[in-house]
Amino acid sequence: MLLLPKFDYYEPKELTEACRLLSETGSKAKIIAGGTDILVNMKKGLISPKVLVSLGRISRLSEVERMNKSITIGSHLIIAKLAEFDLIRKRFSILASAAKVLGSPLVRNRATIGGNIVTARPAADLPPVLMALGAKVKLKSRRSEREVALDDFFIGPGATVIKPDEILTRVIIPETPSYTGGHYIKLGHRKALEIAIVAVASKITLNKPDGVIKDAKIVLSAVAPKAVHAKSAEEVLIGEKPSAKLFEEAASLAMNDCKPITDIRGGVDYRQAMVEILTRRTLSFAWKEAKKGKKQ
């Protein structure tokens, strides 16, 4: 039986109040969102914050807003809701599909988009698709506010550039251009309650339906200390006409863009082989999507 250590708990209604609490208590405080990760880690004795500041009552943090050429998602939006928004389902379908395969219904009803990012787990479901979509996060402290591209946000397992007094408040995703398609595949043993052995998110944009690839993003998950771009694979695609052969070449390059380890969930060789397969499959699907045409 794991015991939860004692701590003080705050539920501010305003973001400024949350920032104040965080700055005043310094490194002793932690933000709690869904609690699916932090409470477990506290029970295991891995961390022992003296103060937990909940974002649950700050209503704006659960809202999705459409901005100029982007959408912004409040960091406290729960995963189950993420897949329900029409806007997200239609325009960022890979985000919706990643949200649907995250954990179990119980976890999805508590865990939040912000939590899935800041915990920086190497096999988390949302970071790879958000990176493929070119997302940024907004980090707010009592005195400052800054935006960081998700590509620059993660350092390693559990480590990010966020400072102790900063709160991840919003996730900003740029609108995708026309002729863009994407796909996310999470490989596990089961269809539910699963953590990825390997996951790949791909997104490509064509200059016209039967044209060349204007932009390509391939993000690999669970095969490095953090989600990583398959850079050499992305590069080989740009300016080229899509074809099965091209995707094979990219997939093969992607294998060398990661550094998997062997653990109880999978071996190095298998993971590396799966990077190739999933890269190829996500690209083929993304191409089909991209050809479909203009975004509405």
Partner: peptide, 12 residues
């Protein structure tokens, strides 16, 4: 635990 012990779920 049920995350890493792969008993099949209703979806499987």
């Amino acid at each position: 635990n049920f995350l890493d012990y792969k008993m099949l779920t209703a979806k499987d």
